[in-house]
């Protein structure tokens, strides 16, 4: 028998195809139960049965509405999280991880740890960056971190500096250990590898990238203001290869497929609540604007033990 869900992961549709999948799922559920469609609903059960399974819940709320009324968004997230009894962690996807003080308001209302996924995202980006530098034959960089002001970019820049890599950042908030540049275009000049760590993209002129550069991107929409120039390679920074034994149902597969990473990968931010729930920790890995290195060490150890790897990005 499948174990009961140990965590929930809250998402909202970002693109029309996701809205369609979520809408159809809602419609099928409400018809089966003879009720009106809810403002949130179950997309599917995902995870590793040997460690923890989680319910992916979709909020029927547009990104614009979430930004315009964060309080209403947090109210909806709270209702959704409370709809699954017995959980040990709540994970947040996309804008759910931003509104309400980057998870803090929701955490105040719930008795289980709420985690934004930012730490696992940083973990994935750092692992991918190391693999990319090796593949490019440029172990010392330079690497530009665009979106270095955010918690993910700041941590990735710090970790790469510690690896002995020459790092350039586009914002003084990411400056504690790296070279500060006037902006993204200046930071990426001549860099074979660029990390797009911002929350929202559209900040980098594609022409500013060096010929043949690799961009590992987690921004949504993407870091580039337009289409990449020929020879530039854009890699999804948050994609992790699925470990053996990964479970997901039909609707989870459908939603995942339109999320952009294809059937063999999973978002790092979804892995974070899974690891948290399986670990029994009562402290989230990421909440608010600060990420802690000791949490990264703990996450790295547990995630690897479950079969996750951050060094095999989609080529």
């Amino acid at each position: 028998m499948r174990p009961a869900p140990a965590f929930v992961f809250l998402v909202h549709p970002l693109v029309p195809a996701q809205r369609v999948v979520l809408g159809l799922r809602q419609l099928s559920l409400s018809r089966a139960r003879g009720r009106r469609p809810e403002t949130f609903g179950r997309i599917g059960t995902v995870g590793l049965p040997a460690h923890a399974l989680g319910e992916v819940l979709g909020l029927m709320m547009e990104p614009e509405a979430m930004l315009a009324d964060p309080q209403a968004a947090v109210d909806l997230m709270e209702r959704a999280a409370r709809s699954v009894p017995g959980i040990r962690a709540v994970g947040l996807g996309s804008l759910c991880a931003l509104v309400g003080g980057r998870g803090e308001e929701l955490a105040r209302r719930l008795s289980v740890p709420v985690t934004t996924g930012a730490l696992a995202t940083a973990w994935a980006l750092h692992g991918h960056a190391r693999a990319a530098l090796k593949a490019l034959g440029r172990p010392r960089g330079p690497v530009a971190v665009v979106g270095s002001a955010g918690p993910v970019g700041e941590l990735v820049a710090r970790l790469l500096v510690r690896d002995g890599v020459e790092v350039r950042v586009d914002n003084r908030r990411g400056s504690r250990a790296a070279r500060v540049c006037a902006g993204p275009d200046e930071a990426v000049e001549g860099c074979p590898l660029v990390i797009g760590a911002g929350t929202s993209g559209g900040v980098l002129d594609p022409a500013a990238l060096a010929r043949g550069a690799w961009l590992i991107d987690v921004a949504s929409p993407g870091t580039l203001k337009g289409e990449p120039e020929r020879g530039v390679r854009v890699l999804p920074g948050e994609a992790l290869p699925l470990p053996a034994g990964w479970h997901r149902g039909l609707w989870g597969r459908a939603f995942h497929r339109v999320a952009g990473y294809g059937p063999r990968h999973v978002y790092a931010c979804l892995v974070e609540p899974l690891v948290l729930a399986a670990s029994g920790r009562d402290r989230p890995y990421a909440l608010g604007s600060r990420l802690r290195e000791e949490d990264l060490v703990d996450f790295d150890r547990r995630a690897r033990a479950m079969g996750f790897s951050a060094s095999g990005f989609i080529g």
Partner: peptide, 19 residues
């Protein structure tokens, strides 16, 4: 220019001030 806030940070700042 000095604290390095980006567009979505204003959302977070506003939320915290409102609270």
């Amino acid at each position: 220019g000095e604290l390095g806030a980006e567009s979505l940070d204003f959302l977070d700042i506003a939320f915290r001030l409102e609270r």
